[in-house]
């Protein structure tokens, strides 16, 4: 039992973080907060990958001249390394959209934006 808990603890916390991000995205009306929630979600996915690539007693995947033979899996590192930088670029795009929405509607709350949209549709 304790072994299972210790062995799966990382994944459970990762799921908790994922759900925290997911909750922020779907429950909060503020668009800036939603993007922060997406960021939490994203970081938790990174952690999931890296946790899976970890090898107990291994070393970082840089060739050791003294002849270590157990390395951490390099593949998740590569995937996540690029994902982090792409993630910040797409976050910046989302934030730019947030800034433009604020300029067009004067608010960042989802329900207020929808109300303004409805009113504009009614006028048109």
């Amino acid at each position: 039992m304790l072994e299972t808990v210790l062995g799966l603890y990382n994944y459970w916390i990762v799921i908790l973080l994922m759900m925290a991000g997911f909750y922020t995205v779907i429950a909060r009306g503020n668009l800036a907060k939603k993007i922060i929630g997406l960021n939490i979600f994203q970081t938790s996915v990174f952690l999931l990958y890296i946790s899976m690539g970890y090898v107990e007693g291994g070393t970082a995947p840089i060739v050791d001249p003294d002849g270590a033979d157990l390395y951490t899996n390099p593949l998740p590192s590569v995937l996540i390394l690029t994902a982090i930088v792409v993630g910040v670029a797409t976050t910046a795009l989302g934030l730019a959209l947030v800034v433009r929405i604020r300029e067009s509607y004067g608010t960042l709350e989802e329900d207020e934006i929808l109300e303004i949209e409805d009113r504009r549709d009614g006028e048109a």
């Binding site: 970082a60 590192s77 976050t91």
Partner: peptide, 21 residues
């Protein structure tokens, strides 16, 4: 977790650039 390259990137990007943005 022995993913040093990822840690490096996250420290520079996640803690630095995205906070500033």
């Amino acid at each position: 977790l022995d993913a040093v390259d990822v840690a490096f990137t996250e420290a520079a990007v996640g803690a630095g650039i995205s906070t500033v943005l």
